[in-house]
């Protein structure tokens, strides 16, 4: 049966459909939008997509995605090199940067331990972290992996691995979200918040 779709359009729909969160209908709508968009817009999109693959690299120190190696944070004199915050994904760096409070550096693992998905410690940037700690000069490691099963598994593995390194090991606190209501929190969150309660000063 001859396809009613011109081949370039069909190809674009297929490619868009591979994106996370994009189903067949959305892919079609996006493809037609791109088709009808003014020339420079579509070109700019294509160039932006190409550029993330060609102009970005991993920082060889923290493994964040950056334009330069080492990245801006790792090469900045204003960032405290004694404190390293360990996160799962580059987006987590953004989350912590948004606080404007953190003056240390980072280490991006690019995932969390999950044997079901075939992810074991050596598949992450864990050997590189151990190496980095061994080189010395790190006084505190903050484990900021997600508070879920895989994130906890990763944090505990790191704690075991780096326990003897002399660096202070800390974990982000868990508990109630700001602006939330206690009565709507689930029991696990509330019991963690109870465990982590602090004296009011």
């Amino acid at each position: 049966m001859p396809s009613a779709l011109a081949r370039p359009l069909a190809r674009l729909i297929d490619e868009l459909g591979k994106l996370p969160g994009v189903g067949p209908k959305t892919a079609q709508r996006l493809a037609y939008y791109i088709l009808r968009a003014p020339g420079p817009d579509a070109e700019a999109l294509a160039a932006a997509i190409r550029s993330v693959k060609t102009d970005l690299r991993y920082c060889s120190v923290c493994f964040n995605i950056a334009e330069t190696d080492p990245c801006a944070i790792c090469s900045s004199d204003e960032r405290d090199a004694f404190v390293v915050c360990v996160v799962e994904e580059p987006l987590d760096v953004l989350a912590i940067e948004r606080t404007g409070q953190y003056r240390g550096r980072y280490h991006v693992l690019h995932g969390a331990i999950s044997p079901v998905n075939g992810v074991r410690p050596d598949d992450l940037k864990i050997p590189q972290l151990a190496e980095r700690v061994k080189r010395g000069g790190i006084e505190e490691l903050i484990f900021a992996t997600n508070p879920n099963l895989e994130g906890e598994a990763t944090a505990m593995y790191l704690a075991q691995l780096l326990g003897g390194s002399g660096a202070r090991l800390t974990r982000l606190a868990r508990g109630l979200p700001m602006g939330g209501d206690l009565e709507y929190a689930d029991e696990v969150t509330v019991s963690r918040a109870l465990e982590g309660r602090r004296a009011v000063s």
Binding site: I113, V116, R120, P121, A153, Y157, Q160
Partner: peptide, 23 residues
Amino acid sequence: EQRNALLRAAREDMTPPEAELAF
């Protein structure tokens, strides 16, 4: 699920899973 996957993977590539099993 996770623990079984780890034991299977460790059996296949003959790595000792001790440190990974702790959690």
